[in-house]
Design a protein around this nucleic acid. Sequence first.
RNA 1: GGCCGGAUGGCAGAGUGGUCAUGCAGCGGACUGCAACUCCGUUAACGCCGGUUCGAUUCCGACUCCGGCCUCCA
Length: 460
Amino acid sequence: MLKIYNTLSGKKEVFKPIVEGKVGMYVCGNTVYDFCHIGHARAMISFDIISRFIRHLGYDLNYVRNITDVDDKIIKRAQENNETTQSLTERMIAAQQEDELKLGNKMPDREPKATEFMQEIITMIQTLVEKGFAYQGASGDVYYRATAFAEYGKLNNRKLDEMLAGARIDVEASKEHPADFVLWKQAKSGEVSWESPWGAGRPGWHIECSAMSTNCLGSHFDIHGGGPDLKFPHHENEIAQSEAATGKEYVNYWMHCGAVRVNNEKMSKSLGNFFTVRDVLAKFNPEVVRYLMVSSQYRSAIDYSDQSLHEAKVALERLYTALRGQTLVSSYEATDFTVRFEAAMKDDFNTAVAVSVLFELVRELNKAKAEAPEKAAALATELKSLAELLGLLYQDPEYFLQNSTIVEGLSEEAIQALIDERTQARKDKNFARSDEIRDELDSKGIELLDSREGTTWTRN
RNA sequence: GGCCGGAUGGCAGAGUGGUCAUGCAGCGGACUGCAACUCCGUUAACGCCGGUUCGAUUCCGACUCCGGCCUCCA
């Protein structure tokens, strides 16, 4: 029995799909005007794991995640770069995909782009206008009439009149109500635009998601997810648009992941305190980033720092060390570890508990190595297969341990040459030289590990 | 001001009405030429004040503090 925390109700609920055995999930993707930062990575990884586990439970999942490829910031950035919006967005989409594959994500089933859904967007706006949920203001822009939707605010527990009182927004003159938001925006000269009944222009941010999600998954679907900062106004507006246009309930389960923080502040573009995925991958193996995300539950805020990355690296090394040298078997009997792992995941995807089960499995595995190699092989296989649900432990253990951090320095050949020299010194009982080599490598961040089978190394 | 979330051992991070989280660090031991890995044992926590209860870190209420959203933002 899968339980999901639903933002709409503020509670964990038993998950029940609309059509038995099938799940439709839409996740808000990125606006592609810049490289992904760690906050984006958190959302992408969270929903990747959620999608993996939903499939693992046997559901036929359709996972759709959009790409916002037309927007004010894209236009502005393209102008600054003196390039077309299309060339900018194409570059950023390629970069995003590259980052994401490095982080170990599986790509969504479908990644619709806003620019590919112009007709659907226009049609939806027309419907809203016809039904009285939208109007064209004096500026020519088309707005959603928030006051016409009685349930406006239901996702965020807000009331329209209270929002008016606390509104800090500069109210645009052509809006009837401060909470009204743009559906269609008139193009300024030189801006990329599409023809519409209201003139050449481009869609507002929220309408594209309503149009893409309902066209890809139907008017009513199971799960809608996104980052914590999309709850309001984006998702509130999506509900208002979609339910007004289709006359049906829009989404059953709303899911939002937690923020990534830096120095106790949210990482965000507007604060400028963000680190890109590329920044981090220059220093750490990508799986370290993934482990950091997985080590806490997807809804909790996560603190990002060199220290938290380092701790993630050390923890991951323990998992990989257990797998080192282990042969895997073609089939194994699932133990209680699998039962407990799955139980944790079924409880609103509690990856923190699931990971703790992996560590308990590792202790059992390490114990079995000497006494019961067959049991160890079975446990190692079980570990790999559970970790795969989190997208972890997919690398060769030796490779990971040697490359958990990325540093300029000694080449593998140089390290091996020193190890060979040291092995000979040890054979000759020349421990002074042996220790000298250990210290020399240690000072360069290389740690040596002696065992009966020989000497291996790890980067610190 | 409104809405939402949080406060757990040295750090990170789960969870539970009464016996274990887990990882790192610490301490004692085994193993080891040294070191590491690994194993065994071990120390240590539930913001504050009330209430409910035989018993609360866990439920309820007040308080304090922190974060998020209310403006583009995963």
